Amino acid sequence: MDVFMKGLSKAKEGVVAAAEKTKQGVAEAAGKTKEGVLYVGSKTKEGVVHGVATVAEKTKEQVTNVGGAVVTGVTAVAQKTVEGAGSIAAATGFVKKDQLGKNEEGAPQEGILEDMPVDPDNEAYEMPSEEGYQDYEPEA
């Protein structure tokens, strides 16, 4: 019985440690998101679009440190934060509304985080759909 109880105690310690790591990862992701939003706020009209992409990228980098179902929630929060940063930029006159959601080359930025393969159960990952990809044929 002692062996059984000791095993359960060790398992509990492992769960607590994993929860603490997840909590730490979420806190880091939130900190990076805040950094990115402050970065966007300090940019001029020309830099705002690039700044919004930076927020998304920093958040995406930190999301990889967070495991399990938390990833889905962090990704949703990050996307809403990026959308909010863009709205703030438009409201303050840093950028025109028609410039939001495009990178410096004018290509749409939507789907940055949505296409990231995420499995809350950590069982399997699927690649994003290939609808947006084109076949590449090298020139002879």
Rank of each mutant, 00 (worst) to 15 (best):
E20P: 00
Q99A: 10
P120G: 10
E83S: 04
A30E: 00
K102Q: 01
I88Y: 12
E35H: 07
Q24N: 07
S9I: 14
A30C: 09
A89C: 11
K45N: 01
H50P: 01
N103D: 13
T54A: 11
K23Y: 06
K23P: 00
G47M: 07
I88D: 04
K21D: 00
E57S: 04
G73M: 14
T54S: 04
T44C: 15
G101H: 06
E123C: 15
A69C: 05
Q109E: 11
G132L: 06
E105Y: 13
K60P: 01
G93I: 08
T64M: 06
V74T: 02
K97W: 14
A89R: 07
A91H: 13
V49N: 02
D119L: 08
V3Y: 02
E57K: 10
G67K: 05
V40N: 00
D2L: 12
I112T: 06
L8G: 00
A53M: 15
H50W: 13
E28P: 01
E35V: 08
V49M: 15
K6A: 07
N122L: 06
V16Q: 05
D115H: 10
K58S: 06
V15P: 00
N65C: 12
E83A: 12
K96V: 14
V26P: 00
V66I: 15
Q79V: 09
S9H: 09
I88E: 02
K10M: 14
E61R: 06
T44P: 01
G14I: 15
V63K: 01
A124M: 10
A124C: 13
Q24T: 12
P117G: 11
H50D: 07
G106S: 15
V118K: 08
K43D: 00
G14P: 01
D98E: 11
Y125P: 11
P128F: 09
K80N: 03
N65P: 01
L38H: 05
V3A: 03
T44F: 15
A27H: 07
V49H: 12
G106F: 12
G67L: 11
M116E: 10
D121H: 12
Q109R: 08
A124L: 04
Q99V: 13
E83L: 05
V15W: 08
M127Y: 11
K45F: 13
A78I: 12
K102E: 13
Q99E: 07
A69Y: 14
G7T: 09
T64P: 03
Q109L: 05
K10S: 04
D115A: 12
K102P: 14
E126T: 06
V55M: 09
A140E: 06
N65D: 04
E110P: 11
K12C: 13
E35S: 07
A69D: 02
P120S: 09
S9D: 03
P120W: 05
T54I: 14
A90E: 06
G67V: 09
D119M: 10
G106Y: 07
V52K: 01
V49K: 13
A56S: 08
G68I: 15
P117S: 04
D98L: 12
K12I: 03
E110N: 11
K32M: 11
E104P: 07
G7N: 12
E123N: 10
T59N: 01
V55I: 07
G93D: 06
K58V: 10
P120D: 05
V48Y: 12
V3N: 03
Q134V: 03
E137D: 11
Y133D: 10
V52H: 01
T75M: 06
S9W: 15
T72E: 14
E13D: 04
A30D: 00
G73V: 15
T72L: 10
A107R: 06
G93L: 12
A124T: 03
V118Y: 12
V49P: 02
E139L: 07
K12R: 14
A107H: 06
A27I: 15
L8N: 00
K34P: 00
A76K: 15
A140I: 05
S87Q: 15
T92L: 11
T64N: 12
N103I: 04
A19C: 03
A30T: 06
D115P: 03
E105G: 08
V71E: 02
Q24C: 02
A140S: 09
Q79P: 02
V49C: 14
G51D: 01
V49F: 09
F4E: 00
L38P: 00
E57W: 05
T75P: 01
V77M: 13
E126K: 06
Q134F: 11
A56P: 01
D2K: 02
E110H: 03
T44Y: 10
E13L: 01
E114S: 07
G93K: 05
G41F: 10
E130T: 07
K12Q: 05
E114W: 10
A124Y: 14
G14H: 14
V118Q: 02
V55L: 15
E139R: 09
A78K: 06
T64H: 12
V63I: 09
G73A: 15
D115Y: 13
E46C: 09
E35G: 05
V70I: 10
K96L: 09
E13C: 04
K10A: 07
E114H: 07
V16F: 10
P120V: 05
G86S: 11
V66R: 04
D135T: 09
V48R: 01
I112P: 10
P117Y: 05
G67E: 02
N103F: 08
E131P: 13
T22M: 08
G31I: 04
V77Q: 02
K10V: 15
E57V: 07
G84Y: 13
V49Q: 09
G36P: 01
V70H: 01
A69E: 03
T33I: 03
V74P: 01
A140T: 08
G51P: 01
A85E: 02
E126S: 05
G93A: 14
A89F: 11
N103C: 08
G84P: 02
E20S: 03
D135R: 09
E110I: 05
V37L: 15
P138N: 04
A17S: 05
Q99G: 13
N103P: 10
Q62W: 07
F94M: 02
P128Y: 03
A27T: 03
K23R: 11
P128W: 09
E130G: 09
L8I: 05
Q79R: 09
N65E: 08
K60W: 12
G51I: 15
Y125T: 09
K10F: 05
F4G: 00
D2R: 01
A56N: 02
D119W: 03
Q99W: 13
E126A: 14
T44H: 01
G132A: 09
Y136N: 03
A27E: 02
V74Y: 12
N122Y: 09
D119K: 02
K45V: 15
P108L: 10
G106M: 07
N65V: 10
E137G: 06
K34T: 02
V52P: 01
V118L: 09
M1K: 00
D2N: 15
Y133G: 09
G47E: 03
T33Y: 02
V82P: 02
G93N: 05
A53V: 13
E83D: 08
G51V: 13
D121I: 12
A91G: 05
P117C: 09
G41K: 02
Q134R: 14
G51C: 15
E139W: 06
A85R: 03
D119T: 09
M5G: 01
V63S: 02
A27M: 14
G47C: 08
A91M: 13
K97A: 11
E57N: 10
Y125Q: 12
G106C: 12
E35M: 13
K34Q: 02
N103M: 13
L8R: 00
Q109V: 06
A89Y: 12
D135F: 07
P117H: 06
K43T: 04
E139I: 11
K32N: 02
K32H: 09
A124K: 15
V95G: 12
Q62K: 13
V16K: 08
K60S: 06
G86N: 09
K12F: 04
A90C: 13
K23V: 05
T59V: 12
K6C: 03
V95I: 14
T81P: 02
L100T: 07
G86C: 13
H50T: 12
L8Y: 02
T33W: 15
G36W: 10
A56H: 08
K58R: 13
K58E: 01
A19T: 02
A53D: 03
G93F: 02
P108H: 07
Q99K: 03
G41A: 11
V82S: 05
G84A: 14
E130M: 07
G7R: 15
Q134P: 10
P108N: 10
V71C: 04
A85I: 14
V26W: 13
V26D: 00
E126F: 04
T22R: 01
E46G: 11
E104I: 04
A30Y: 15
G7F: 07
G132S: 03
E105W: 01
L38Y: 11
K58D: 01
D121M: 09
K6W: 03
G25V: 12
G86A: 08
A107D: 06
Q109K: 14
P128A: 09
E131N: 11
A78E: 02
E110L: 12
M1R: 00
V66E: 01
K32S: 03
A107V: 07
E104S: 09
K6F: 03
Y125C: 06
E35I: 15
V40F: 07
S87N: 06
D2H: 06
P128S: 05
K97H: 13
G7Y: 06
Y136D: 02
T72N: 11
V95W: 12
P138F: 07
G73H: 12
A29T: 08
A69N: 07
V3E: 00
K45M: 15
K6D: 03
K45E: 00
